[in-house]
Each structure stands twice: as C-alpha cells, then as structure tokens.
Design a protein around this nucleic acid. Sequence first.
DNA 1: TTTTAGCAATCTTAAAACTAGAGTGCTAAA
DNA 2: TTTAGCACTCTAGTTTTAAGATTGCTAAAA
Lengths: 335, 335
Amino acid sequence: MTERQEIILKLIVDEYVKTAEPIGSKALADDLNVSSATIRNEMSILEDLGYIEKTHTSSGRVPSEKGYRYYIENILKNLDEETNGFFEFDEIFDRDVARDEIIKEAINLLSEATNCTAISLGPNAYHSKVKKIQLVPITSHQALILVITNFGYVESKQISISQEMDTDELIKVIDLLNEMLVDTPISKVSEKLHYEIQHSDIKELLKYRETIVDSFIKAFSKFARSGYYLTGSSNMLYQPEFDDIQKLREFITTIDNNEIFRIVDQDSDGISVKIGSENKVTAMSDCTVITSSYDTLEGEKGSISLVGPTRMDYRKVIPLLKYIARHIAKLYEEE
Amino acid sequence: MTERQEIILKLIVDEYVKTAEPIGSKALADDLNVSSATIRNEMSILEDLGYIEKTHTSSGRVPSEKGYRYYIENILKNLDEETNGFFEFDEIFDRDVARDEIIKEAINLLSEATNCTAISLGPNAYHSKVKKIQLVPITSHQALILVITNFGYVESKQISISQEMDTDELIKVIDLLNEMLVDTPISKVSEKLHYEIQHSDIKELLKYRETIVDSFIKAFSKFARSGYYLTGSSNMLYQPEFDDIQKLREFITTIDNNEIFRIVDQDSDGISVKIGSENKVTAMSDCTVITSSYDTLEGEKGSISLVGPTRMDYRKVIPLLKYIARHIAKLYEEE
DNA sequence: TTTTAGCAATCTTAAAACTAGAGTGCTAAA
DNA sequence: TTTAGCACTCTAGTTTTAAGATTGCTAAAA
C-alpha cells in the first residue's frame, strides 16, 4: 500500500466513523488536492486489496473489517496516543471509596463517553483465599454461614439448625472448618473439603453434617460470579447500525441471556480487538468487542470490555480503554 | 351495557389478544349468528361508550384502555380462574433449594410462559432489624464492616484504617454501634445514627470518625435494593407492539436505567393492574404492569410484577401471577 | 323496535412507476 | 500519472395505482 493509499484509508475510516455514510471520491478530493478521478483510481486499488468496500455498485466506500484492522494496527500505532484529557476519569479514580464503586462509576462513564456497552469482569473472588468462616445465629433454629476472603469478599448462606445439633458441636465444626480451610484458594475449597471428609479424622464429625457442608460449598460457589458488571447497552441502540429492528432485537436478546459472557475475550493479555465476524456470536457480527485485561499483584485477572458497532471511534476508544484498565489494575496493586 | 355488547367486547379482546389485528364486524358475525350489520351497530355503541376504538376511519376495532379495564374487572371476574394446570411451576416450588433460587426460577419461567418481562422485588431487608454489626480485619490497614439482620441478610463494606486509629478504639466504636443499633429497623438506622451522634455522649467518640459512620450508612443502604430481579425483557420485544423501533429503544432505555423500579406498584395490596397511560413512565404508555404483592409472617413485603404490551393475555396471566405470588409468600411463611 | 341487505365512501397496504441525485468506471487527452 | 468528461448504475424518496377491508348510512324486512 502506498503512502497516499494509507492516507485515503485513514480519511475514509475517520469520516465514516463520524457520519455513518459511505464516502465518495469527491469528498476526499478537497482534502488531498487531487481530482476526484485520482481518488477513484486509488479507491479502486484499495477495494481490490480488500480494505474498503461498496454498499452497492454506485455508492461511496466504507471500510471493510480488514480495513479497520489495518487502521488499528498500522495507522493508529503511528499516532500519539492521547492519554491525557481524561480528567473526568481521573476524578473517579482519586475518590476514596470502595474499589467496586470506583469500577462501576468508571464503567458507567466509559459507556457514556463512547456510546457503547461497557463490561467489567472480575477480578473475582475466585482466586482469593479464605480468611475466616463464621457462624452467626439468627433464631433458635436458623443460622448464617459467612465466608470472608483475604480480599474482603463476603458471601453468606442461611442454614437451618435441627434439634439434634447442639451449639457446642456446631462451634466445633466451624472451628475445624476454619482450621482446614483458612488460606485455601476459593477455587480449591470444594475439592479440599471433599478430600478431607474422606481422609482425615474429622470425617466422623462432618460426615453426617452433609447439609452444612453443602451449604458451605454453595456459599463458596457464589464467589465465582462476582465482579460482573454491564452497563450502557441502551446508549448504543440509538446508533444508525441499530436502525434495523431485527438486529436490535438480537442484540438485546444476547445481552439478556448473558451470552455476552461468551464474547469477552478473557484469555488474551493486554488489549484484544475483535472486529465483526471475528466474534463468534452471530448477533455481534456487526460489532466490535475490545477487551483490555489486567493482572493484579496477587495474580488475579480482570478485564474491562467495550462492545459497540464496528464503526466506532477506535482512535479515542482504544487509548481510553487502556487507560482505564491501567488505573483499575493500580487499584488492586495499592494494598 | 347490554349482555350482547359485553359478549362482543369479550370476543374483541380475546381475538385481538391473539392476533394483534383490529377486529371487524364480519369476523364476529359468524360467532354470534347475527349479521355483520347488527354487530356494526353494537360496535358503534361500544365505541361511543369508549370501550373500543378504531385505528383509522375504516378499520376494525381494538379494545381501548377502558375496554381492557372492563374486561378485567367485569368479564374475567365471572370466569372460573384456572388455578390448576400450572404444574411446571409446582415443580419449582417443591424443590429443596434456597428461596432466592426458587424465586429466580419461577420468575424466569413466568416470563417465558407469558412473553413478558418479569420482575421480583423483595422481600427486602428494608423492614428487618439489625442483629449484629461486626468488624473483620483483612490486612493491617483494611477492614470489613459486616451488618447482619434478624432475617439473615448480610451486607458488607470495606474501610481503610488509617494509622492514627488504634484497634482498641475501633472495637469500642463497634461495641457502641452495636449497643445503639441492634434491633433497630434498617429503615431507621440512618436517622437514628445521625440523631445519636448529635445528642448522646458517644458523640465525642464518633464525631471525628466520619468515614466509619459513612461506611456504615452505605452498608445499610445496600439493603434497600436487595431482592431485585428482572428477566425476560428480550422475550416481549418480538411482539408486534415493538415493531416501532423508537418504542423499542425507549423501552430498553427505561429498563437499562432501572426506571422500571418506578413502575412497580409497591404500595398496593393484592393485585394491581396498571393499563397503558395509567403508568406514569411514558415509555410504558403501551404497556400493562401487573403487580401482585404479598406479606410474610414477619411483616415484610414483597411483590412480583409482569410488564408486557397492553394486549396481553389477561385471562391467563392474572391467575398465574396470583398463583405464583401466593406460593412465594408461602416460602416465607414456612420457617 | 330490531335486524338486515346493499352500497358508497374511506382508509390501508403493497406494488409499481417515476425522478433526482450521488457515485462509479472507463476513455482519451493533458 | 493525473484529469476532465460522460454514460451507466443504483438508491432513496415520492407519487401513482390498484386491491381489499371495513365502516356508516339508508331503506327494507322481520
């Protein structure tokens, strides 16, 4: 691709992102001080190369998925990323409130600033360790099991206490569980619990307390889903891409069914951009999903994602997403 | 309204619910063994009375809001409510899993069976009382405030502990708070806390611990939102009422912004049906919201609601909603 | 008094026809 | 290599047309 072709591709993407209308040769002629015929020739080449396409035989051009890819990987790279100018976000990160709240607000603002759907996933408690297990009596025959982790996650589960269990025994069970499970990663609890019941000498004590053990396992499993937050799906529905009612319905259905989970690329490191058909979910075939992952010092993993039409303002969105992910990661490093 | 007019109204509602198309006089003539001209005369009267209306001058008739109202209050009342035949639901209620899970599943199935959005609200902790307040240290400068209520609700809030606070003092604060707040309804906590800080002698101790007190209030306020669950909004979007893309967008936006809270009628007892413009939120002006409230033995209040197009199958939906609410209430009575 | 047949009038919806405008591709000249 | 010119293509919006459904009204029938 010649330099001029690259410039033309850039102009097409930039303009199309703004207007959502196909770009004709005439519009670019003014910008480049050449005639529209010259642009037409260049466009024809760009089309042969697969970077742009027509919506019909006599329309202007729109970027193809390959065109967006090239734009992101070759053109944006050479531009200075604007990492300042995000002061609305700085304000959020400076606030002295709980991490969860900060993330929520950042995600809210992110979705508002981009008109895309923003998703935050994790770091969830799945990788943290048991700090304390506690039993709190509620009534004479009801109690609450509390599980608290070293990162401050809490889950609870109500249990019924039948007549035959006496309080001393219950306390003994809790003490034993604490002894056994403190410092165990949440992800290993179930396994360890089952193993110990089979093999150690507390087996006797726990064996016929199956309900209690079950309740514990249920309380633990609640941790896995924590840290999921999605917002702003309504913002992007007003984009012209969703003028097609069938697409709109499909998109909402996908979100409603939590299928968006399947879309977020949790495995990659750093930033991942999935354009259009690169997403496996069909309802997302006109969308781009950008995911920025981060690790905490403790080895936890989290990510924030942005879902929007392929025609999104990558130049603004990518640096912004990186910036926010960096700051969220920092929140987890501070302690 | 004569008997025949009532029958005609019933037929119009029943048919319109099924087809979403205006009903003409010809269609009803077959059912009633009179000529279409006779039906036309009757329809004309029903229209003058405001029970049905035309979509344009030469169209068939559709029920008006007043027509639906009459149908629900006068026509449905005389039909036997089918309370059996809900065995898919019975199965859910018989399961031996946590209340929350049962409610979730019932709501899911409800929305699926009706193609409407189903919402469950409460019983939330708002009416329960403080059982215990607890501080759990996480690290040397981080701790967790736990608030546990007499119904077993738990909320937590992380706080930072600055250097200058020493542990003994913190424990004293917690003890004081416990003394002050145990048995206080969650709804009164904030008020009481502020009052005591102003007036009692603990004022000195608490006054310059504003962050802690703030954290407490935040933890408490989390209770208010508990027990909220919404599902199935995507089901109803495929109804012809939402062929209008603008309406569709408005509806989604309303849900996305949690405005649906404002729609659920929490005050009424028993069943409440809000038809079309009776809902205050404009995006709901073509929807009906049916809410069925229930009380638990402890005086807690909860409700399940169904949101769908005004053209919904009231005959099926209302008994179903009542049935489910009754069973959910029972869940709370059992213990 | 109630019901019905007949018929003109009204309106919707879908398809077809038309028009203006934007953009392309190609050719030949600069 | 660039450009001007021009025929050709396609869209999108508007208008036209036609078919079909339903009503309201009138006058006759029950």
